[in-house]
């Protein structure tokens, strides 16, 4: 009976496990292997691939690659600024949403729209809005007497491009967070707010001392998942800048974009392994961030 049960369970799991074995577990393991291949040509020998041995030099090659450092810098700046900012903004919005008596559903629906739209289509719309001469952003800036800025055009500075990318990224990522935080807030017992009012807490104190701590498990979860999301930024860059990956070629390249760039050059000896090495590095960076966030938060989440 026991073994029969076991067998049946594995039967139910088989379709999923089979697919995952082929398309998740094997590729994860194989990415490590590829990153140590020497002179790898993946499609040679009728798709069997060819190598001349194993080496650790692929990592050395990408560490000497200017573009790789550029992609690290872009990815880190984007993730470390846009994730905390979008979390803070969405928290404030959720708290504001909670406090209003009417139109809650309307605002929630509007705020959720970015989640269900095509990132590349909207990215292109942002690109038009960021246009130096006939874009909306510079028009708004001109209302405040600020001179036109080249955000994403050929003369755009790195900071202008990064700013544009961040604005778009935050705009895109608010939807999910607002929705999740709003339902998280609903689960907090109203009595804590009544008690805090009785205890003379100001709105800001309530936010800082009651709402945020009580929501901290959710905030941790959201910050880890959005950090992972931000570290894989790619579609947003394509949407905003196209295949050039920047106002100047590759100026906004991200780690994932770097991986894809070297992957697409698979006919050059060893390039596929460079892509794999970069992917492995991304894997460890992601892991590191998740661990750090969990450890740091463990100390601050006491409940």
């Amino acid at each position: 009976m026991e073994t029969k049960n076991n067998l049946r369970a594995w039967l139910y799991l088989a379709p999923m496990l089979l697919l995952m074995a082929v398309f998740t577990f094997y590729p994860l393991f194989n990415a490590f292997v590829i990153s140590f291949y020497k002179d790898y040509l993946p499609l040679a020998n009728d798709g069997a691939g060819s190598i001349t041995g194993y080496t650790i030099a692929n990592y050395g090659v990408i560490f000497k690659n200017q573009l790789f450092w550029q992609s690290l810098k872009n990815t880190f700046v984007l993730a470390l600024v846009s994730v905390p900012l979008s979390i803070i903004i969405s928290l404030l919005i959720s708290v504001a949403l909670k406090s209003i008596p009417k139109l809650k559903g309307f605002f929630q629906t509007v705020f959720f729209l970015p989640y269900v739209t095509n990132g590349i289509a909207v990215g292109m719309a942002f690109a038009v809005m960021f246009h130096r001469d006939y874009g909306l952003f510079n028009l708004v800036l001109s209302w405040f007497g600020i001179t036109a800025l080249d955000w994403i055009g050929g003369t755009a500075s790195w900071w202008a491009q990064m700013g544009a990318l961040m604005i778009f990224t935050i705009w895109e990522s608010l939807a999910f967070k607002i929705l999740v935080f709003t339902s998280g807030l609903q689960n907090i017992d109203k009595q804590y707010y009544d008690a805090a009012k009785i205890d003379h807490a100001t709105k800001w104190t309530i936010f800082k001392r009651i709402t945020v701590p009580l929501l901290s498990p959710l905030i941790l979860y959201i910050s880890i998942t959005s950090m992972i999301g931000a570290l894989k930024a790619y579609n947003s860059v394509i949407g905003l800048f196209g295949e050039r990956l920047g106002a100047q070629p590759y100026s906004m390249i991200t780690i994932v974009a770097f991986v894809y760039k070297y992957r697409s050059d698979f006919s050059f000896q060893g390039f596929y392994s460079y892509a794999a090495s970069a992917a492995i590095i991304l894997f460890f960076i992601t892991l590191l961030f998740s661990v750090i966030q969990t450890v740091v938060s463990k100390k601050r989440i006491h409940y």
Partner: peptide
């Protein structure tokens, strides 16, 4: 508003802040 009235209130379920 309640925070200005200078009252102390003990709730039925106490409403102690669980994280403090």
């Amino acid at each position: 508003p309640p925070e200005k009235r200078g009252i102390g209130l003990v709730f039925q379920n106490y409403a102690l802040y669980p994280h403090m």
